[in-house]
Design a protein around this nucleic acid. Structure first.
Lengths: 243, 243
DNA sequence: CCTCTAAATTCATATATATGACTAGTTGAC
DNA sequence: GTCAACTAGTCATATATATGAATTTAGAGG
């Protein structure tokens, strides 16, 4: 192959431009997580760079968690896998033992809807699909979620058979709708349980709740999901490391 | 200078060993934040490495936040500065406007004490110095802290004049006691206000509180401080980014 | 068909070198 | 004395190359 050219502003360093170009190619779905992307040698030849420069560019995407190196094998697109991380805010231990419980999900409602104000603001549209979901640990409800996704990027979501839903949504977004969630922002606060939330989580209205508002973004930093999750404050536990 | 040798296991890559060696030299207080560490060229010669390898080693410490590069000038030890980050858990806005308030600190008690169970477990000793501190935004108390530090590493802490205390403790630890806090772990949970806490923060006993337990570690990963902080859950707000 | 071996491929580490960008200090003209 | 130009030092980017480690593939031999 003759040398392709790197996109974007040529005043930027080559490794930055390579990073942007590769991100775009990943976003376009050119490679799946199953097969490796071209080797460092190939990329170097394709773009007319040295392997060192290619390596530095790829390093950036590996640090971002977009790519994954396997020595001797190749470099692979990393499948999205952090949907479950809302549970990182809550104790996963059972009341009795120290064993970790397995999270499960139960869909309550899926429907085309008009986005509430916060969701509309985050997503930039009012035409959305609304999903209500209850997440449990060993059949004990822990987390109640309202999830909003833009209707135009998720056509057919409401009609999907329930069997296609696993415990994680983001892999589904990727496989069925080509939407890859690259990062998300969680906003945490405390509040009291509303009647609806209390009923779903088998608590009393007014009980202290941890509230997590999440906006998720795709590779182009466009918002693709907004959700609000409620969990009992008593079970809330979070660890944050700083340096 | 003749080539010095890198410490630690020589089966490890050179850049890792350089990282460890530099960390040890920083821990020993060989360089202050005011003056640059030796240039990449010098380090390369000193340890018999190429500049590329030195660069990769230094990169690691820059990523960890231990060093700071300044193009054209040099590479510097970064002064500790994240003490104030407990405030990242709380709204810094005033009730009325959007302006950010300036945090202030007020010491209530400093005394040699026996560590409570949790602190003793975290620090590995019961001989500690206990500090009670109230932190405010624009004279409104926001955070009540109990702080425990090992007595043997902080001799003379109790006798320090109040004027030597700024809003941040970690720079003081470093300047007066040679203790550099490299990272810390915050554990967040939720509870109700005790009588003591309520009084200090001008709340009612039983009011919902956010509780932050922090263990701070030095460069050798030894615990050097344990604290527990209480703040009103109503003001609690935290943002977490994931990717 | 299976197993072991050898070779090819790919990422990981390391060296040597060159040029550009930025900073800080020095020199020199005015 | 002031300010501009120059210069040496330092990090930033980039190339070219070599060797090692881990994995995969191909093939020989049973």
């Amino acid at each position: 192959m003759a040398t392709s050219s790197l996109s974007s502003d040529d005043r930027l360093p080559a490794y930055v431009r390579l990073r942007d170009t590769l991100t775009a190619r990943i976003a376009a779905g050119e490679w799946t997580p199953d097969a490796p992307i071209p080797s460092e040698m190939r990329l170097a030849k394709e773009y007319g760079l040295s392997v060192g420069t290619v390596r530095k560019g790829v390093d950036g995407l590996v640090d971002e968690g977009l790519l994954e190196r396997r020595q001797g094998s190749g470099t692979y697109v990393r499948a999205p896998s952090f949907d479950a991380t809302l549970f990182r805010f809550f104790q996963l231990r059972e009341a009795d033992g120290s064993q970790r419980a397995i999270p499960s999900s139960q869909l309550i409602v899926r429907a085309v809807a008009t986005a509430p104000e916060e969701a509309a603001e985050a997503l930039g549209t009012t035409k959305v699909i609304k999903t209500l979901r209850l997440r449990s640990l060993s059949d004990v409800p822990v987390l109640y979620e309202e999830i909003y996704i833009p209707a135009d990027r998720f056509e057919g979501f409401v009609e999907l058979p329930a069997s296609s839903f696993g415990p994680l949504l983001y892999p589904l977004y990727f496989e069925r709708f080509g939407v890859l969630v690259k990062h998300a922002v969680d906003d945490l606060s405390f509040d009291q349980a509303s009647a609806t939330v209390a009923q779903q989580l088998r608590l009393k209205a007014g009980d202290p709740m941890a509230v997590i508002r999440r906006t998720a973004f795709d590779l182009k930093d466009k918002p693709v999901e907004w959700r609000i999750a409620h969990g009992s404050a008593a079970q809330f536990r979070y660890r944050s490391e700083i340096s």
